[in-house]
């Protein structure tokens, strides 16, 4: 395995771990922030796939704006930190 592949593998695994945390973590705000982390990892993968345009857009829109939007909307909907789902 080349060093590049190891990098790709670790980014992919980090992304998947973040995603698994998003669907299982109790805190809603934590899930929103982890979603941003997943987007950032995806942006890194786009960069690895020679798609710099997509990577920039994903980083700015997916990781930046979407995450802040999630947090703002969550505060606006005035919900507590607990998830009553479980």
């Amino acid at each position: 395995m080349s060093p590049n592949n190891i990098l790709i593998l670790s980014v992919t695994l980090a992304m998947l771990a973040g995603a698994a945390a998003v669907v299982s973590i109790r805190s809603l705000i934590g899930a929103a922030i982890l979603e941003g982390v997943v987007s950032l990892m995806a942006a890194l993968l786009f960069l690895q796939m020679s798609a710099p345009d997509v990577a920039i857009t994903q980083a700015v829109i997916g990781a930046g704006l979407s995450t802040s939007l999630f947090v703002i909307a969550l505060r606006r909907s005035n919900s507590g930190q607990e998830d009553s789902d479980e």
Binding site: D53, T57, A59, V60, I61
Partner: peptide, 8 residues
């Protein structure tokens, strides 16, 4: 880059 990330 371009208009979408720039605008965002």
């Amino acid at each position: 880059g371009g208009g979408f990330p720039g605008g965002a």
